[in-house]
Design a protein around this nucleic acid. Structure first.
Length: 272
DNA sequence: CCAAGCACCTGACGGC
DNA sequence: TGCCGTCAGGTGCTTG
């Protein structure tokens, strides 16, 4: 579910509240399937003190005092929430009890997400992060534009391709294509450097705005405190097929690109 | 090498 | 009301 802004908001929230907390025990409710078995994951976490929480691509990382790291991928419906201790509910995958009586809970209705524990060496060798492209908020639009300039794939597919640029999902891809006035099926090599620079500048704007609005909540996302985001109220195109373009009032259309629904304005976003 | 398509899983919603 | 089909923010594997 969460894309870069949502994971960033969660990571910032956790970093503020978890730093210095020690994990005293962990519960793995019955029938839960973790990508790393509970009998190896739990002992790696219990007794450790949390140093910091941060994000890379769409991955949430919690670094522990022995320099190992708990790695969470939330995929579509994962949540990581820090709050008062409570009984496990049906979607909880793992619950970490902390030394101040609070609890860190990873839950995931659709069970696509995962949590793993890595040593520094394992983390450095982890294929997923090795393959991830540059962070869009820490990379110049000119450099990002260069990464799509010679590609024949649809620009929408390139934005979703995590090795081209990390952290972008369907929402922020569609929203930045609208702002740049680019049709989602436009080939990368047909965009031109100036327009591509514009696209990535818009992507940066949208991501920053979404972070400042606490992320986008469609159905499942909540931040580390359990609160919904607000950026969904600022969507121009995502999920608005048939509705009117904020710029020209045309009816928005949807096409499938790279297997994903792409909503766009047929008048403002012409194929090049 | 690349792109397309499906698999992974549960729940919500619309149509009949 | 209930059954069925479709869809959902991501990624990885297989196929062509």
């Amino acid at each position: 579910m969460p894309e870069l802004p949502e994971v960033e908001v969660i990571a910032r929230g956790l970093d503020a509240t978890l730093k210095g907390r020690t994990i005293v025990s962990a519960e793995v409710p019955g029938l839960t399937r973790l990508s790393e078995p509970a009998n190896t994951l739990v002992p790696k976490a219990v007794g450790r003190t949390i140093r910091r929480a941060y994000r890379r691509a769409k991955v949430l990382l919690i670094e522990l005092d022995d320099r190992s790291t708990l790695v969470f991928h939330l995929k579509m419906t994962g949540r990581v929430v820090h709050g008062e201790r409570r009984a496990a509910d049906r979607h909880d995958r793992i619950l970490f009890n902390l030394d101040d009586g609070s609890q860190l809970i990873f839950s995931d209705m659709r069970k696509f997400g995962y949590v793993r524990a890595f040593t520094p060496e394992e983390l450095a060798e982890w294929d997923f992060l090795k393959r991830a492209g540059p962070e869009p908020l820490e990379t110049a639009p000119e450099e990002l534009a260069g990464r799509i300039r010679d590609r024949r794939s649809a620009v929408k597919a390139l934005l979703l391709n995590q090795s081209v640029v990390a952290g972008v999902g369907n929402i922020y891809a569609d929203e930045s294509l609208f702002r740049a006035g680019l049709h989602p099926e436009t080939r990368g090599d047909r965009i031109g450097q100036a327009k591509a620079v514009e696209l990535f500048a818009h992507l940066q704007d949208v991501l920053k705005l979404a972070i400042s609005e606490n992320g986008s909540s469609i159905s499942d996302y909540v931040n580390a405190s359990g609160d919904a985001g607000a950026f969904q109220n600022s969507f121009n195109v995502y999920g608005k097929k048939g509705c009117c373009c904020v710029r020209c009032e045309s009816r928005l259309q949807a096409v499938k690109v790279a297997g994903r629904t792409s909503t766009f304005c047929p008048k403002c976003q012409k194929k090049r």
